[in-house]
């Protein structure tokens, strides 16, 4: 893997792994991407966090050269998206299991490796590295359609990285996998980061973005509504404040009145409040008692990315 060295040289020359400038993409009347701009630093893992339909996959497909933007420009290591140079530098792990089900794991890797121009020993080495990286050596000869869901996901990732790209696009690579396989995938991505690859990682799971990404862009309705490190995003939205989550039993109208009176919001039956100091909790509980409500559950937590998304959009990330 020489991704780190190459990327470092390009970074020294001032060439960014990815530069997106005022990107717009419409699908009929629907605005898929609405003027997104961003720049990636060499070797970083950049998260695109947003609900389904936010425009993450459209942005990824545009970077991969599979979507022609209506406006704006994308450069991959200085080359226009979709150009031969950009395609050679990019590795794309699509959300779908884009594999040949009747081919074995090895045959799939060899096929995609050859599509990227690998041959001979280079191809053999790349296949061996990919099988090792994806922990699929034991199932190298198994038909892809017979692999488990987690194994297929890992093979899907390996097929996108077979040519050792310098910039990796991962579009929700953990969709539909069990927690154990998800952890295995996290380890694979961390291994790539350790090798200096630049990664874009889209997800609608905030835990994944928090664990893997250096910087995170929160995407909603085709726009980036916030972009920074996780801590900076939380701090910008909440400063030093904390969140109180309370579940109460009582007439709905009285619960609503109590939440509104104390400046909170109800999300799926749970009242959420932002407080500066823990001693504000007592005031909240006194108000509930006075309204005739019975407290069922109460917790205090530091705000996370989901809280930030809720704060910025008024909706939950899962919506």
């Amino acid at each position: 893997m020489n991704a780190s060295l190459t990327s470092d040289r390009l970074a020294a020359a001032g060439v960014l792994p990815l530069k997106v400038d005022s990107l717009v993409k419409r699908f009929g009347q629907v605005l898929g991407v609405d003027g997104i701009s961003l720049k990636l630093r060499s070797g970083e893992c950049f998260g695109l966090l947003g609900p389904n339909g936010a425009g993450k996959s459209t942005l990824i497909r545009a970077i991969a050269g599979r979507v022609i933007p209506d406006a704006g420009r994308i450069e991959v290591f200085g080359a226009a998206a979709g150009s031969a140079t950009a395609r050679a530098a990019l590795g794309w792990v699509p959300q779908d299991l884009a594999l040949y089900p009747r081919l074995t794991a090895t045959e799939n890797l060899r096929a995609f490796g050859s599509y990227y121009g690998l041959s001979g020993k280079n191809l053999d080495d790349a296949v061996a590295w990919s099988l090792d990286w994806a922990a699929l050596q034991d199932r190298a000869g198994a038909l892809t359609r017979n692999l488990s869901g987690g194994m297929k996901r890992r093979l899907n990732m390996a097929a996108g990285l077979i040519h050792q790209p310098r910039l990796v696009l991962m579009d929700e690579p953990t969709v539909g996998v069990d927690p154990q396989s998800r952890n295995r995938i996290f380890e694979m991505i961390e291994a790539l980061r350790a090798k200096g690859m630049t990664i874009i990682y889209t997800t609608h799971y905030m835990e994944e973005a928090e664990r893997l990404c250096d910087r995170i862009a929160i995407v909603d309705h085709g726009r980036i509504i916030a972009l920074d490190t996780k801590d900076a995003l939380v701090h910008a939205a909440f400063a030093s404040r904390s969140q109180v989550l309370a579940r109460l039993e009582g007439p709905e109208a009285q619960v609503n009145a109590w939440v509104t009176e104390h400046g909170g919001r109800l999300v799926e039956g749970t009242a959420q409040f932002t407080i500066e100091h823990p001693n504000e909790i007592a005031g909240l509980l006194d108000g509930a008692t006075a309204a005739g409500l019975e407290l069922v559950d109460l917790s205090l937590r530091r705000p996370n990315l989901e809280s930030v998304f809720l704060q910025l959009t008024g909706r939950e990330l899962r919506d």
Binding site: R66, R87, W92, P94, A98, F112, G160
Partner: peptide
Amino acid sequence: GALDRVLSSR
């Protein structure tokens, strides 16, 4: 999606 992936290669 394999077609998309193939077309994103060379």
